[in-house]
Computed example of a mutant assay.
Amino acid sequence: MSTLHPAPPRGPQAPVVPPSRLSIWLDVAVGALVALLCLTGGPVPSLVGDLLFACAIVFRTIRPLVGVALATLGGLVLLVVADVPTFGLVAVPLVTYAVARWSPRVLHYVTGGILAAAAIAGPLRWFGVSNPAAFLVISFTCLVTVAAAYAFGLVLRAMAISRATRARAQAEQVRHQAIQRESELRFNTAAERARIARELHDIVAHSLAVIVVQAEGAKAIAARKPELAVQTLDTIAAASRESLAEMRQMVRLLRGEEGQDADYLPTASLADIDELVERTGNATLTVNGVATPTSPAVELAAYRIVQEALTNVIKHGGPDARAEVSITHHPGLIELVISDNGRGAATTSDGMGNGIRGMGERVQLHGGRLETGPRPGGGFVVRAHLPKAGPAR
């Protein structure tokens, strides 16, 4: 099952939160109020400029470029026809703030130049000749007011960009975490499937190989030595029962029913290798060294490696092949050697076997080492080294 995780939209700059509907309606109300105040008083020639300023307030957030154009046009009208400042000039800092807050950056420079020129041209037109001191004070006040509005807009813009960037980064992090969780789930699922496949291969392949060999032997001696044929059939029955029990155990584990059945069997261990070798019928076992506590998982891996190696002897070694199994306990290490005198690597194979690969996976899983290959003088040898405690986590 696959889950799609669409990536968030990308752009050269983090998105700026657009103005809210409330702020737009507030601009409309302020623009209407400025227009009404201008209509109730003031010289008639300056009325057109004031109305243009009122319209600039209305458009300052939804269309900043239109707001700048209307404010510029209104300022030019007042510069020509008005002899004194009018109430409509309150639109200048409001438009300046809106441009800095919501407009593209290229519009900032155009607006800054226009407003800087207006902050000097207006006071010069109204106070420059008759009252130089008033010109300086008014010019400085206009510049400070416009600069403060511009800076306030830039600060809020930067805060909005920062919030949007953090939100985008968090969304990206959540997306990557979801992808990572899905990848880990797929990896764990694949690893579990591989483990189940190894277990099924080891259980079924060995049991069937023993059953086939013993059945052929029973068929050959049934007429001449019936008592041996009966003994062979008992071996076949025992191998079949054990294989069936292991299969049932695996099914219970897959269903999560371990511990619910009285027939639950313990995991195979080093102690079970003796019975495994005896049941195979063509192998001998030698144990060297002193056994020390070993991880149950490592003991199961050792059992499966011996089981698979003996299965290969039965399948590929030939009818007269004999195997020797050696278990040597070293400090912190188990050494397994399974060798035979059969055809070994010279046998014909269909290329579909998974035995050696499965042994390699088991050894690698526990941090060990596996060596396989033809034995000098004929036959095949499997040598495995397994740390008793398993790999360091």
Rank of each mutant, 00 (worst) to 15 (best):
H5A: 12
V28W: 10
L33T: 14
V34T: 11
L37A: 13
C38E: 14
G42T: 02
L47E: 07
L47I: 12
I57N: 08
V58Q: 05
T61D: 15
G75K: 01
G75L: 06
A82H: 06
Y97N: 09
R101S: 04
S103A: 15
S103P: 00
V106Q: 14
R125F: 01
F127L: 00
F127P: 00
I138P: 00
Y150C: 10
Y150R: 13
G153M: 00
L154H: 04
I161P: 02
I161M: 14
S162E: 14
R163N: 13
T165I: 06
Q170H: 14
Q170M: 15
A171Y: 03
A171P: 01
E172T: 07
E172R: 09
E172K: 08
E172V: 07
Q173D: 15
N188Y: 09
A190N: 14
A191E: 11
A205R: 08
I211W: 04
G217H: 15
K219C: 09
T232I: 13
A238H: 11
A239C: 07
E242A: 11
E242F: 07
L244W: 07
L244P: 01
M250K: 09
G256E: 01
L270I: 08
D272R: 08
D274V: 08
E278S: 12
A291S: 12
T292L: 06
P293N: 04
P296N: 03
A301M: 00
G317K: 05
V325T: 08
S326A: 11
G342S: 01
G344T: 02
A345W: 11
T347H: 10
M352S: 11
M359I: 06
G368I: 10
L370T: 05
R375S: 10
V382P: 03
H385S: 11
A389K: 08
A389N: 09
G390R: 03
